[in-house]
Simulated assay, not measured.
Amino acid sequence: MSPTALVLRYAGFAGLATLANLAAQRLVLAGIPGQPGFVLAVICGTGAGLVLKYLLDKRWIFFDQSGGIPTHARKFALYTAMGIVTTLIFWAAETAAWVIWQTHAMREAGAVAGLTVGYVVKYRLDRRYVFGRAGRTV
């Protein structure tokens, strides 16, 4: 795959995961308003985006064909661990936007900015530590 195709595919998947994240957040916030809803929304949204992004990245970015529950569990655990730092970037940007403006539009803008920076960092970590040589197309 060409570097341009890889970047476009990765960006598209990041976009899909972002939409899944924000949709999950909206669902939670629709049922639980205020600060408790916000905290739960961030956690649920992060989980939804994480699972979708892992599945897409594993198959279509890193072309990882490995199988079996132990292998998937190990890789998903590593993928999740690599996401801890990048999730902190995302949460900090989203929370800062919420605290400053206290509107859902700006909260989502902060989330998108944080996720964008986080995904760039995450690709590099996943390529090196989670999927190893299988992901080295660039």
Rank of each mutant, 00 (worst) to 15 (best):
I84N: 12
V130E: 03
T87H: 14
V121D: 07
G114C: 03
L88E: 10
G45E: 01
G110H: 00
V120D: 04
R133D: 14
E108Y: 15
Y119S: 15
R74K: 13
Y54E: 10
A109Y: 01
K122F: 03
W98T: 12
K75H: 11
L115S: 13
I69C: 11
A105N: 06
T116R: 01
R127Y: 01
G118M: 00
A41D: 01
A97N: 03
I43W: 10
T46L: 11
T116H: 03
V99C: 11
K122W: 09
H72F: 04
C44Q: 06
T71L: 11
V112R: 02
V121N: 09
F76K: 04
A105D: 12
L40I: 06
F38Y: 15
Q102M: 01
T46S: 14
V39D: 09
G68A: 03
F63S: 11
E94C: 10
F38E: 14
V85S: 14
A105E: 08
G118Q: 01
T86S: 06
R128G: 02
I100P: 07
V121C: 06
F131W: 06
K75D: 08
V112Y: 03
G49R: 03
G83F: 00
A41M: 02
A109W: 00
R127W: 04
A41L: 04
A97T: 07
L52S: 03
R124P: 07
G45Y: 00
I100M: 12
D64E: 12
W91H: 04
A81C: 11
R124C: 11
I69D: 07
Y119G: 07
V120Q: 02
I89A: 14
L50N: 09
L115M: 15
V112T: 06
W91R: 05
I84M: 15
T103N: 07
L78T: 01
V130T: 09
C44H: 06
F38A: 13
G45P: 08
W60P: 05
G68Q: 05
G49D: 06
Q102Y: 05
R127K: 12
R59Y: 08
D57T: 02
L88C: 15
D57I: 03
L125F: 08
T71N: 12
L52C: 05
L52Y: 07
F76A: 04
V112I: 07
K75R: 09
Y129T: 02
